[in-house]
């Protein structure tokens, strides 16, 4: 069996778990966490394809994953910052209760 399959299946599973979390959880923080999981799944794909791809010496997959980690950190910081600001207004992080455009 091609070793790539295992890694890609793991990534697919991780992505699905993240997706399920985003779809079902009410807490905005956990929705963000689910999104991070999906991003991580994409990263795993990039690394796996780099390792078993045709041209690993060019490092494209690794670099892409590193940039993606950096961008994900920025996304988490801004997203959680927005959450703090919103929670201060509506006193909740439950997305079902954040239903007004004017706080």
């Amino acid at each position: 069996m091609n070793p790539l399959t295992g890694y890609l299946l793991l990534a697919a599973l991780l992505f699905s778990i993240g997706l399920a979390g985003v779809l079902t959880r009410r807490s905005a923080i956990l929705m963000l966490v689910g999104m991070e999981l999906m991003l991580n799944a994409a990263n795993l794909n990039l690394i796996a394809f780099w390792r078993y791809g045709p041209n690993p010496a060019r490092m494209t997959g690794v670099l892409f994953a590193l940039f993606s980690i950096g961008v994900a950190a920025a996304e988490a910081a801004v997203g959680l910052g927005i959450l703090v600001a919103v929670a201060r207004r509506v006193r909740t992080t439950d997305v079902d209760q954040m239903n007004a455009m004017r706080g």
Partner: peptide, 9 residues
Amino acid sequence: ALIGAVLLA
């Protein structure tokens, strides 16, 4: 993002 997060929070 750093500046934005600080301003937001």
